[in-house]
Nucleic acid binder design. Structure first.
Lengths: 106, 106
DNA sequence: AGATTAGTTCGACCACGATCGTACTACGAT
DNA sequence: ATCGTAGTACGATCGTGGTCGAACTAATCT
């Protein structure tokens, strides 16, 4: 295969992102844990690398939810799927939100 | 009755507020609408004054959820219950979060 | 006291979503 | 080609929560 073979999974573009959907996506402990993990890796990491207290299928469900909400972006890289926070989009739409959430200790 | 007769309904104090609970509370359209309304009235307003597409009992349910999450504070004033955003607490805990949410157009 | 008004509480209903196991797809390596 | 690995899709289960109506509480007013 071509070395540039990398597809971005379907996601809403910035104008389609809705704040209540984003908040609902973030308001789930497992998903918040994922977001926190992604925040430490600006370039994104493979889904499986994040240790989570759920099975692989549940993890896939949460990643899909985050992606469809516009919180993360995911692209393929071989068999791996690399996810990353859509920091720029979120900061433009809701300046301060992500910072506030990530600064939380509890 | 005494003019100073005013009770604050039970609510978590700042240290007890949890970010996932706050996010989940905000991630519901009706509650977000309430929060937006309260944001325009720093001194608080009576629950019934906010026009909402739900019945009184559902409104009471949402106000309780917001209060127990630590998003709003409510005190009695005669038969009325005045609610207000806990702006200071939220800004201290999650600086930027409220600003980001309220700046959202959609 | 009785009536009115503001709001809550309770119980029921129903939809949504978090979870899991299993089956499946896609890519890479042997 | 076959096997292993990364991850998704589907179907089922089950708990949570948004909704309502009806009954209730508490304060105000006449």
């Amino acid at each position: 295969m071509d070395a540039t073979d990398s597809k971005v999974l379907p996601q809403p573009d910035r104008a389609e992102i809705r704040v209540d959907v984003v908040l609902q996506a973030l308001g789930e402990p497992v998903r918040l844990q994922i977001v926190r993990a992604l925040a430490t890796a600006p370039e994104g990491i493979a889904c499986g690398e994040i240790e989570l207290p759920v099975t692989a299928s549940t993890r896939a469900h949460h990643l899909r939810t985050l992606r469809e909400a516009g919180v993360i972006t995911t692209h393929t890289e071989g068999t791996r799927r690399i996810s990353a926070l859509r920091r720029e989009d979120l900061d433009k739409l809701y300046p301060g939100l992500l910072t506030g959430v990530l600064s939380a200790e509890r």
